[in-house]
């Protein structure tokens, strides 16, 4: 049996099984050998990939922990990325360096003016966090004022857009003060958003949604 495009049913099903990763090893190798010579079969594979990719929506979006991007860049590029590549060994560089010195001396201490702040606290106030967000860059400084994870457990920070499911901002590090970057798609959803901290297994929620108790919450309010 062949369809309008001249594909036979066996090949259509085989290509689908191949894309789904279902073929036994020997059949997979035989299929790959044919793929090299049969462009028509490759078209079937691309078609199935395109169609199934739409299903990936079901997996939902989960922000990876903020430190992951730096880990990837270290793996690829070695040392940490230079943040101020425009300082060269030129006269211009000297002027720029002078400007930075001026900035360091005259800029107010702390992050650029935050646009939003949140006090995230448990009911008994044993766990308390303060967060300050700069909307334009998504940089959010998080300070742990009180509390820690239970032994063998972790604390995970969540961003909850109004009326939507929580999005993970990663596990709280041991440090009392750290900065996380709010992913770009979330920066449009600050109005009515809430920050929350949940109790999770080490490494954080395995499902992408909070699995343990929500220990503390706090609304993200605009400053001023």
């Amino acid at each position: 049996m062949t369809d309008a495009n001249g594909h036979n049913e066996d090949d259509i099903a085989l290509a689908g099984e191949y894309v789904l990763g279902l073929l036994p090893a020997d059949e997979r190798r035989a299929f790959e050998a044919r793929l090299r010579d049969e462009p028509r079969l490759r078209v079937l594979v691309v078609e199935w990939d395109e169609r199934f990719a739409a299903l990936a929506d079901e997996a939902g979006e989960v922000a990876p922990p903020p430190a992951l991007e730096a880990r990837i860049e270290r793996r690829l590029f070695g040392a940490r990325r230079r943040r101020i590549p425009w300082i060269g060994a030129t006269l211009g560089g000297l002027i720029a360096a002078a400007a930075i010195v001026a900035l360091v001396f005259f800029a107010p201490v702390g992050p650029a003016d935050p646009s939003h702040r949140a006090e995230v606290a448990s009911e008994d106030a044993e766990l308390r966090l303060a967060a300050a967000l700069v909307e334009a860059t998504g940089e959010m400084q998080v300070e742990r004022l009180a509390g820690a994870a239970r032994p063998g457990r972790a604390l995970e920070l969540w961003f909850i857009p109004e009326g939507e499911a929580p999005v993970s901002l990663g596990v709280l590090p041991e440090a009392e003060d750290y900065t996380v970057t709010l992913p770009e798609p979330l920066r449009d959803r600050l109005a009515g958003a809430v920050l929350a901290v949940s109790d999770e297994p080490p490494g954080g929620s395995p499902t992408g949604a909070p699995t343990g108790d929500v220990l503390a919450t706090g609304a993200l309010d605009t400053v001023g």
Partner: peptide, 15 residues
């Protein structure tokens, strides 16, 4: 990255 992390998490079910 949020989309692709969602896909990885769905398959592996381990953060």
């Amino acid at each position: 990255s949020a989309k692709l992390f969602g896909v990885c998490l769905r398959v592996l079910k381990n953060r």
